[in-house]
Every structure is written in C-alpha cells, then in structure tokens.
Amino acid sequence: MKKAVQALAAATAVASAHLSAHAGDGQFQLLVLAMPTKYHYEYIPVARESFEKLAKLHAFELTWTAQPGAFEGDLSRYAAVVLLNSSEEEFNEAQRAGLERYMKAGGNAVVVHRAIISKPGLWPWYEKLVGRSFVIHPMLQTAVVTKTDVDHPATFGLPERWIWSDEWYEFSNPHGVSVHPVLAVDERSYDPTKIWPGQVAKGMGADHPVSWWHMFEKGRVFVTALGHNAAMYRDERYLDHLWGGVWWAAKGYGASSKP
C-alpha cells in the first residue's frame, strides 16, 4: 500500500510539472528551469504560480522543472527556455551540450537574475550566451530604473522611471559581446559601494544595464538581472517586464527583435 501511495504521488508530481493552457492549443511551449539554491529557493512556489497564471492568460503551454536533466532530452518543441535563478554551475557535460545544441538549432533563451552568474572559465559558451559576466553586487537597495529601449516588449508595462529594490549586479564583458540594453539602473539613486565587510563594489557608472537582449548562435536571448526576492514574482510591473522578455524570446515580436 505504501509503495502504491508513493507511486501515485510520483505520478502526480510528474503530471503537475506540465501545464497546458488549452490542451495543445497554445501559442507555443515554454520550458522553465527553477533549481533551488542556497540563496534562491523561496521564490519557486511563488514564481511557479505566477507563470501558471501567465500560461492560462496568454495561452501558452508551460513545462516547469527543477531538474537540469531536462536539457539532456529533445528541446526542439520549446519556443524558448527560461533559466530562472538557475546556475549553469549545476549543469553536467551532457546538459551543457543539450543547451548548446538547442541554441545552435535556433532555440531561444531567457536568463533571469542568479542564472546570470557563472564561474569564470567553467563554461565560456554560456558566458557568451548571457552576454555579460557577473562581478559583484552591493546590498539590496531601492533605486531608480530607466528604460533604454522603449521599443522592447519588456519595457511596455513599465513607467519611464521605475522605483525598484533589488541586488544591483555589476558586470564585465571579457568576451567582447555586443548586447542591446533594455533597462538601466541610475547609480545616483543608491549607494553602489554599500557591501559586506571584506568585499568591494565600485559601481559601473552611467552605463549600468540591468536587462538586455542579443542574438546568439541562431536564436534570441533575453536577460534580466532583476528578480531576487520571492515577493517580486507577485509584482505586476515585474511580471510585465518578465513576460515581455519571454514573449519576445519565444516569438520574436517587437521593434527590437532584429539585430
């Protein structure tokens, strides 16, 4: 009896990992990878609920997983994959190869917050996919975000100047990748040097993007550094920003969709 209950629970978990908006009648299929990590796990049930609501509202099919093993299978049915706070450091060689095959075949990617961070030199291809390399971030603070690409769908639901609280990641560009900024943070509106003892953050100056897009391999890549706290995944403006990026990555619509 116990084994039967366990088997039923497992089957239910597998079934619930896929949400069909209209029984195969959706606009596209989306894969979201949300792996729990030391600092990013409380957001998962909140983000999943919001993505499921988005799937119903916008008629797309959602596959949600916490296992990077999904990247070892056939990804061709997905219009885009979302790496939601999921570090590439957890990928094994087969999973890395799977993501590379997907992008080289014309797949599209959305990289959110913690998924930007990668160990330097571990997977250079992934650093190029993201377009920028994480350096450090000061303590979470409130700051002013501005639009740098008003024609990108990820900005359509946002005001010209947006007060937001987050970890303001600082970046470098060791691979010389050209990206198109969508949002930037105004460093005059927070203290870029406010950080924990023993660490140093200097800020990036006037040119400090926090969201961008670019074309990589044969696909579209949308990146946002925003999204640290669980409560953010209930914020309508943040979800407008995130959904705009997902929609653009999956469909390619919007004035900024061409290089």
Rank of each mutant, 00 (worst) to 15 (best):
K3S: 14
L8Y: 15
A9M: 08
A15E: 12
A15S: 15
S16P: 01
H18Y: 12
L19M: 07
L19I: 04
S20K: 04
A21D: 09
A23D: 15
Q29G: 14
L30R: 09
L33A: 04
M35S: 13
P36R: 09
K38Q: 11
Y39R: 10
H40Q: 07
Y41A: 09
P45A: 05
P45H: 06
V46N: 00
E52K: 00
K53N: 10
A55P: 03
A55F: 01
L57H: 13
L57N: 13
F60K: 01
Q67N: 15
Q67F: 14
G69N: 10
A70G: 09
R77P: 14
A79F: 02
A80M: 00
V82A: 08
L84A: 05
L84W: 08
N85R: 01
S87W: 02
E88H: 06
E88R: 02
E89G: 02
R96G: 11
R101N: 14
R101Q: 15
R101D: 12
R101H: 14
R101V: 01
Y102G: 02
M103W: 14
G106T: 07
V112N: 01
H113C: 08
A115E: 06
A115V: 08
I116C: 10
K119A: 07
P120C: 06
Y126P: 04
K128L: 05
L129P: 10
V130A: 07
V135R: 12
V135T: 03
I136C: 03
T142A: 09
V144N: 00
V145F: 06
T146V: 15
T146M: 02
K147T: 12
V150N: 03
D151H: 14
P153E: 05
A154S: 13
T155R: 06
F156W: 15
G157K: 09
P159I: 03
R161V: 01
R161H: 06
R161N: 01
I163G: 01
D166I: 04
E167P: 03
W168T: 06
Y169R: 09
E170K: 04
S172P: 03
S172M: 00
H175A: 05
V177Y: 08
S178M: 02
V182R: 03
V185K: 06
R188E: 11
P192L: 02
P197G: 07
G198H: 14
Q199E: 11
Q199H: 14
V200E: 04
K202R: 11
G203I: 03
M204A: 11
A206W: 06
V210F: 03
S211D: 08
W213C: 14
M215Y: 12
F216R: 11
E217A: 15
K218C: 02
G219W: 09
R220T: 11
V223A: 03
V223P: 12
A225R: 10
G227A: 10
A230V: 00
A230M: 02
M232D: 15
M232E: 11
R234N: 05
R237W: 13
R237G: 02
Y238N: 03
Y238C: 01
L239R: 07
L242C: 11
L242E: 05
V246N: 08
W247I: 01
W247R: 09
A250G: 07
K251D: 04
G252Q: 12
G254M: 05
S257G: 15
K258S: 14
